[in-house]
Amino acid sequence: MENLIEIDNLTFSRSGRIIYDDISLRIQKGKTTAIMGPSGIGKTTMLRLMGGQLTPDSGEIKYKGESIPKMRRNRLFEVRRQMSMLFQSGALFTDMTVFDNVAFPLREHTKLPESVIHTVVMLKLQAVGLRGAAELMPAELSGGMARRAALARAIALDPELIMYDEPFAGQDPISMGVLVKLIKALNDALQLTSVVVTHDVTEVLTIADYIYILAEKKVIGSGTPEQIKNSDSELVQQFLQGKADGPVPFHFPASSTAQAFLGGDL
């Protein structure tokens, strides 16, 4: 299977704190890959590294065999036209209508006449079920609708790769179901490659073709949903079943309880 993105021996640290320590990932073309892990381990950072917004300390990130950190700015911008990212907040431009938001990448990067842009935008909005909301401002949309509008914008230029940053976070069950269905449908219909970063276990198990679980700066488990479910790693099982305590401790590292509560003379 062909890999769209290959990450090798990646190390990344921010303000002196190591976030990734020597990890390697493969994103297969045309598949949905999920990157999971507990909050605060820098899953979004992984997407930013793939998009070239951050540069790793060491290691290699290759997009179609070409190193992203080594790209010159112009080349990076060309490559980014083939990718798009769905941000957690949607990141719709608040000073434009939904229509103009979706039309934005088309107007920026193509010279299509306005009538064609209108048709394309309406098709994309139809795909996410928001054709009726074209003239609303982003502030008038609910969280789930904003994310769908942002998804319409993300697919406006028919990218090869979509990166979803926590698409399910903070959504009600219905919106979540809609988004799961959309991501699946887009992947099947457009032959997209998707990277989904999330910690919502059940949703991911239904849409992902391949799963990486990150924790403690490392990849602690990877495989198809079946393999992951049957993993014998304690860490993976703790994450999947949401146990409060386990290899990932409930307590933030601290001095021993005896010392803290009994005056420390034991």
Binding site: G51, Q53, F77, R80, R81, M83, M85, F87, A91, F104
Partner: peptide, 13 residues
């Protein structure tokens, strides 16, 4: 609200 980031990801400076 990540609008600047999203511009960058859309290859717009």
């Amino acid at each position: 609200t990540e609008q600047l980031s999203s511009l960058e990801m859309m290859a717009v400076d």
